[in-house]
Write a protein that binds this DNA or RNA. Structure first.
Length: 562
RNA sequence: GCGCCCGUAGCUCAACAGGAUAGAGCGACGGCCUCCGGAGCCGUAGGUUGUGGGUUCGAUUCCCGCCGGGCGUACCA
């Protein structure tokens, strides 16, 4: 039982005795006081209760404390402070035992069951297969992937899905664009359609096709040729996207194709349902959905005047399809340019009978690339964009993932390329990885020095402030994971890991681990190992490697020798 | 015009479902290397949380107005 759980269980007893409503979960929130003198965990229930009970909060706090059964193994003392805070001071014995518990839990440390097995589907990236992935897709990939990890660790059953827009106008345009490149490559100068895709990648693909198939497509009827090229370009782009994702460490459970929906005509079923429910009307030859009845600013077209289903229409069918597959909740990650799209999708799903809270959209804000604090100029029109793959080539997977998740997703991200590449304390991902490597190195050194590192079990020598500070950080981990999952705020994880790393470095610089008395060494090795475990588990949730050593930088002296 | 997101130290960001004296890192300034990796550690300075109201025991957090920035506002996807 964690100290937090212990306190909550005892608070429950006290509330019960006093006749408070123990169904109110907010009574049990324990926060960490900002100031050290205020104990390790603080309960704010007295102040919450003041209104309902119509009593002074300090008075209520006194009653709670009087009825709180104190177990000295866990709690040193309980204080009443300020307007009605109840401050708990954890006992060294329970903190010392936490180290053993963390090690016993091992790779499972940090997991919890809060999610209660809820089935959640996360859809992210879902980039149009009409060009290479950009850096926003990279951010979406990082955030979506880490969020899925966090949810699964918190007891949800979460899966990753990628929606492939492989039908409709843009794919036809893609085919036409490739066709133009192909004919041009054959010497028949043909312009790419005005609103087509002008990037170099189609030129490259055209050359590949020419090498593999020669001129054989030249004599196809134009319609057939474009059809063929649409398919070829599509599969080519899709394969590239898959490769980028896998290289980035993101593995989707499902790649769902829009064309599949069109084949099975699932959107027509949707139309029937909406019509039956009275949310459909016709105007100007088009079919409209009354999304404004659910808070959208205006109604939306489902079938255009020339009888084509809109993207939105098929997308509704897609989301309905997800629900049919049994998910309790859908979470979509969209780019900032799609936030205006949320009300209509939400409206459609509500019209189809799904409670509003079962569909949730997280907007991932844009990424500004910086080089030495100067913005990297990108022009979509001129085809000057930094591709996701180029970014990974330059800064690597670990740094990219860390940086993309390090800030709340609702904020624009300034991504400093030079900082991400630095191999020193300025770079947070190195700082955290180095902390992990340092814990491993201590064990390596222990072996070299002939100290035993097996059958360690005594943590009673962990009494100093630096050790206690680490343990208090380590026992937060399950809570950090659970809260990051529940609030959809993955940035809390990297922020936490930075704090653990700082606590470890501080401890290391003030306390000798190896060349200490046997008992102290044993205790500190255990603490080192528990810290390693938490860092490793955290980095794994981030999808970042946990190195056991760091490659040495060239020192100035080495440079002189060379 | 309307809608959504954002505004916190010089810079980049935190602040855990409204809590106590708003915290880190970088940068600046000042310390610490016969010691498990100095790739680190310790300290100092730096704030009217954009602004004006409101809600209450208490607001960076919730509500309204204004200012500033970003994005959107298609029978496109």
């Amino acid at each position: 039982m964690t100290p937090r759980e212990h306190i909550q269980a005892h608070l429950k007893k006290a509330f019960d005795k006093l006749g408070f409503n123990i169904d109110d979960a907010s009574l049990f929130t324990l926060e960490q006081p900002k100031v050290e003198n205020f104990g390790d965990l603080a309960c704010t229930a007295a102040m919450t209760l003041a209104r309902v009970e119509k009593k002074a909060p300090r008075r209520i706090a006194q009653e709670i404390i009087a009825n709180y059964e104190l177990d000295p193994f866990y709690i040193d003392r309980v204080d009443l402070a300020g307007p009605g805070f109840i401050n708990f001071y954890l006992a060294p014995a329970c903190l010392q035992r936490s180290v053993i518990e963390i090690l016993a839990a091992g790779e499972d440390y940090g997991r919890s069951a809060i999610g209660a097995g809820e089935r959640v589907q996360l859809e992210f990236v879902s980039a149009n297969p009409t060009g290479p992935l950009n850096v926003v897709s990279a951010r979406a990939a990082s955030v979506g992937d880490v969020m899925t990890n966090l949810l699964n660790a918190a007891g949800y059953r979460a899966v990753r899905e990628y929606y492939v827009n492989d039908a409709g106008r843009q794919v036809r345009l893609l085919g036409a664009s490739l066709d133009a490149r192909y004919l041009t490559a054959l010497g028949d100068e043909t312009p790419v359609p005005e609103d087509g895709y002008h990037g170099d990648y189609l030129r490259e693909l055209a050359n590949e096709i020419l090498e593999s198939y020669g001129e054989s497509f030249k004599n196809f009827p134009e319609a057939d040729r474009q059809q063929t090229f649409s398919q070829k370009a599509l599969e080519y782009m899709l394969a590239r996207h898959k490769k980028s994702m896998e290289r980035f460490g993101v593995y989707f459970d499902v790649w769902f194709r829009e064309s599949q929906l069109r084949k099975t005509k699932e959107h027509l079923e949707i139309l029937k349902k909406l019509k039956a429910a009275g949310f459909i009307y016709e105007k100007d030859d088009a079919v409209w959905f009354k999304s404004s009845e659910f808070g959208d600013e205006k109604d939306r077209v489902l079938v255009t005047g020339d009888k084509r289903p809109t993207y939105f229409f098929v997308d509704v069918a897609y989301h309905e399809n997800k629900f049919k597959r049994g998910f309790d909740r859908l979470i979509d990650f969209w780019g900032p340019d799609h936030h205006g799209y949320i009300p209509r999708m939400s409206a459609a799903l509500q019209a189809l009978g799904h409670p509003k809270h079962k569909f949730q959209v997280e907007i991932i804000q844009q990424v500004n690339l910086l080089r030495d604090s100067q913005p990297v100029k990108m022009s979509k029109r001129a085809g000057e964009i930094i591709e996701m793959d180029e970014l990974i080539d330059e800064v690597g997977v670990d740094a990219s993932r860390f940086f993309f998740v390090d800030r709340r997703t609702s904020q624009q991200l300034d991504f400093d390329i030079e900082l991400a590449k630095r191999e020193d304390r300025n770079n947070p991902v190195w700082y955290v990885q180095y902390a992990h490597a340092r814990t491993c190195n201590i064990f390596k050194k222990a072996h070299e020095k002939g100290y035993s590192t097996t059958n360690l079990r005594d943590t009673s020598a962990l009494t100093d402030d630096f050790a206690m500070a680490i343990i208090k950080k380590l026992i937060d981990f399950p809570d950090i994971v659970a809260q990051a999952a529940q609030t959809m705020e993955p940035h809390r994880l990297p922020n936490y890991l930075k704090e653990v790393a700082a606590a470890l470095h501080r401890f290391y610089h003030h306390q000798i681990v190896l060349d200490a008395d046997d008992k102290i060494r044993e205790s500190r090795l255990l603490l080192t190992d528990a810290t390693r475990q938490v860092l490793a588990n955290g980095l794994k949730l981030m999808g970042i490697s946990a190195p056991t050593y760091m490659a040495k930088l060239d020192t100035a002296e080495d440079a002189e020798i060379v």
